[in-house]
Design a protein around this nucleic acid. Sequence first.
DNA 1: TCTGGGGTCCTAGGACCC
DNA 2: TCTGGGGTCCTAGGACCC
Length: 420
Amino acid sequence: MIALIDCNNFFASCEQVFQPQLAGKPLVVLSNNDGNVIARSCEARKLGIGMGVLTGSVREFVRSHELQIRSSNYALYGDMSSRVMETLELLLPNVERYSIDEAFADVSGLSRELLVELCQFVRRRVHRHTGIQVSIGVAQTKTLAKAANRLAKRRSELAGVCIGTEAESFGKTLEQMETRDIWGIGGKISRKLTGFGIHNAKQLRDADPAWIKKQFSVVLMRTVLELRGESCLKLEEPEESRKSLMCGRSFGKPLKELEDIRPALTHFVQNAVTRLWKYKQATSAITVYLSTNRFRKKIAQRSASASVEMEATDNVIQLNAAAQRALEQVFKSGFEYHKVGVLLHDLASVKNIPASLFETELGITRSHDLMGAVKKINAKFGRYTVASASASGSSDWRARSKSRSPAFTTCWNELPVVHA
DNA sequence: TCTGGGGTCCTAGGACCC
DNA sequence: TCTGGGGTCCTAGGACCC
């Protein structure tokens, strides 16, 4: 049996935990650059505010319904996520952190009654430790646990827990579920399924797996098997390391000059490399991409990328130099650029990197010591205390973030104040 | 005015080999 | 009308997720 534990309205809930005046109010959280809505409280949802709608379109609710607006605050959400996950790991075996607000866990070998009891206990504990409400779905496979979780959220009489083990009654649930709402099925595949007369999850479950594989892919065939209760997606090992890593953002305003884009890229490289260090990994290929704003149809469009390969390294100076070279390759003047970013791929654990031919030479040793010092200083005083000089310069690239709440849990100067 | 950011997995098709 | 056949490896891009 697999449980899926999912935080309710996670970003909005994080805001409400530290700003009690927001509790029970309609609240939305905006994307980077304050462009659109990426999270909503229940009350905001009831107003009919959709996921992903433009910020401009919700302004009317600010006056009419006292809608509260916050820019996204990833420092806060990341820290709250860790607290939720740590609590889950205390209570359940084999927890797989699946996303910032979701985790799978193995809950095999329990009766239905015990499952309900355990899940309710987990809900109370997480709420007590963090102030966050979670919903829990349990079933034979990950895909079914996802479906059960959806029900746990929608039916208030379930009190946040849905055990989807009865084939008969769960069949009815699947019948009411559109294929688009199944985990792993997006708009494209859903439309294609409709073309074959498959409209709901039950119909998909009962389709011939071999035929599905032929018409679609092995991925969708697995979904069919999972819907039948045959587990194809196992719980992932926690220490499995990532394979690629990226960092990029859209600019606060369009940029035309190479020299204005450089500081942004340097910043993103530094950010990406800091994460590389955290996971004790090195990269041997770096890609820089640069693009205009695809939503502005009237301006000339351009989107390009360039890659540089090298011996595996985690040296931020070397990587930034490579990134800047790649940027020079992709940059072409005459366009209004909107976004730049960097991808590090072919990541490998630092331990597994073959010794370089030049390992013993003084230069390498010294650069290694330099990196060690930079890592220590930035870990202690903040990520950008020591940065490449090319990070200075124009800061026009910085995104808008007008309504960001304080980093309540990760910054000494922004701790919440309690008035006794 | 404003249109997110960071990931994974799979497949098709090209290059190359014998 | 014909232009082999089958294998491997790599990359770009698609589709999806939260």
